[in-house]
């Protein structure tokens, strides 16, 4: 199948074209994803000699992550998919992060600011795809509960910001941590292809971010 995938949840802007298993990719680690994303996509399609209408589906990192980043990714996915009437595969950015680590048990953490992390635990199935072991949460690092078993690998910017605290909470379950790894579109594409086969594609207007952090405003009390 021909799949375009991208993720903009972190400070990495990453895009990949997966063509029946062969992967072309682009990666930028500058702050303005809105400056690069469409140019990267255009370069990938040109390299493959494809028109966007020839794709089978579009996958994007639906979060959690930077709110603005998520809307850039979801907005581009919506626009491209709506225009070409293509199905969309929203993929967890934490799962894409975990998928990129060569390990059976992964503790994925993205820095959520405000002294919190987006947190998920993943194991791998027989096909080598990560499977969530708990619901994604936004959590204080000191509130993380240690996973069962041993040999877990920590990964992501959450470990960069709060590695010592997360490690002490994980205790002997943790083998080591890799704080510099970011979600990459090639791994997102792997998960998206499986989701596509499982019939999990949605329409363009359902290509929505999943913020996880939803308490972003306080309602006023009483009149006025």
């Amino acid at each position: 199948m021909k799949l375009l995938a991208f993720d903009t949840a972190t400070d990495a802007c990453t895009a990949a074209l997966s063509l029946d298993g062969q992967v072309l990719e682009r990666f930028e680690r500058r702050s303005q994803h809105s400056e690069h994303l469409l140019t990267m996509i255009d370069a990938l399609l040109a390299e493959a000699g494809l028109r966007i209408q020839q794709l089978d589906a579009i996958a994007f990192g639906r979060g959690p992550g930077s709110f603005t980043g998520l809307r850039i990714g979801a907005g581009v996915a919506q626009g491209l998919a709506f225009a070409c009437d293509l199905p969309v595969l929203p993929v967890s950015s934490l799962a894409a992060l975990a998928q990129g680590v060569d390990a059976g048990q992964v503790l994925a953490a993205l820095d959520a600011r405000m002294q919190q992390v987006y947190w998920g635990a993943y194991t791998r199935n027989a096909q080598g795809l990560v499977v969530p072991r708990l619901s994604e949460v936004v959590i204080n690092p000191e509130a993380v509960t240690p996973p069962e078993g041993q040999g877990w690998i920590g990964v992501g910017s959450g470990w960069d910001a709060y590695g010592d605290m997360l490690a002490s909470r994980s205790g002997s379950a943790l083998a080591r941590w890799l704080p510099d790894i970011v979600p990459q579109a090639r791994h997102l594409a792997t998960l998206a292809a499986a989701a596509f086969r499982d019939g999990l594609a949605v329409s363009a207007d359902q290509a929505q971010p999943v913020y996880v952090r939803d308490d972003v405003a306080v309602k006023r009390r009483g009149p006025a």
Partner: peptide, 19 residues
Amino acid sequence: LAGALLVGTAIGRSLAYAW
């Protein structure tokens, strides 16, 4: 509003590109 504007520009620019 920066975030609000970005939604329209992201979707609008992508629609035009794909069309």
